[in-house]
Design a protein around this nucleic acid. Sequence first.
DNA 1: AATGGGAACTAGACTTTGTCTAACCCCCTG
DNA 2: CAGGGGGTTAGACAAAGTCTAGTTCCCATT
Lengths: 145, 145
Amino acid sequence: MTVPSITEQITREQAQALLARHGIAPTEQRLEIARLLFAQHQHLSAEQILAQLSRNSARVSKATVYNTLNLFAETGLVREVVIDSAKRFYDSNPDPHHHLFHTDTGELEDVAPAQVQIAGLPGLPDSREVLGVDVVIRVGPRHTD
Amino acid sequence: MTVPSITEQITREQAQALLARHGIAPTEQRLEIARLLFAQHQHLSAEQILAQLSRNSARVSKATVYNTLNLFAETGLVREVVIDSAKRFYDSNPDPHHHLFHTDTGELEDVAPAQVQIAGLPGLPDSREVLGVDVVIRVGPRHTD
DNA sequence: AATGGGAACTAGACTTTGTCTAACCCCCTG
DNA sequence: CAGGGGGTTAGACAAAGTCTAGTTCCCATT
Ligand SMILES: [Mn+2]
Ligand SMILES: [Mn+2]
Ligand SMILES: [Zn+2]
Ligand SMILES: [Zn+2]
């Protein structure tokens, strides 16, 4: 699994603003992780983030990467995407959207949510609410029958 | 995580027919796993199956449970459902359908596919095809604002 | 300036899910 | 009866993620 190269970085100030908007205290490590993750719309695993950070010679421990990603996910700053079952991905695209999963390459592609219509949900009791709808379209090489 | 109690078992012959239809050689262990899984429409993890089998004093190893579930999934006899990222579930409901996931209880509920409309998929190259569409609706206790 | 406390960070042990390996068993076939 | 292939098994192993206990840092209070 290769880590996408960094095309551009957001500034510390931009990262601070993102964290502030979600009520997260801006520590050195959290800012570094945010700058990396929000450099572009992407889907990264904890392992990829850890690897990239150490490549940038940022001093962040494994525990902090996991703690931070969990914190980001809880506050809604990033979205946890579960597809692989072996590994979680963290999605820096804040807009509601769905995913195309390429089973052969492992690549994950964003899909505009307008393409998918949730017609009607089964009647839920008033005490419960929909927290989110995850749609994953699995695609692969055409099966030559 | 509790294991649903067995309400009814399918016969060995019914299990054999299921396996035969998917080109799977009917061994003792595979039949036991199939009888357990297809006793009803349900979603079980490997751990739950292993636990239930040993409770039934069936002699099946961990390796065989995993091998068998992978085999069942590859041949399309069961459907692998990934939600939790910590654990895979195997779905004995053969009909196309979606899932309601109760985040508080961990419960997984089937949803008729008619409720969800996939309007249009992004243009795929002719060389690739859609293998499946997984829709998971996450619900939980209403957030009291 | 010293002290106390809380939040955050860290190394590394630990847990859990799933895979792999090597031996073994069983049955069929020549 | 020998050989071979498919299947099962125990247990070692791998990988992702969590937890613990100790430390560091910052800030407020005295
Ligand atoms: Mn947001
Ligand atoms: Mn089928
Ligand atoms: Zn995305
Ligand atoms: Zn189902």
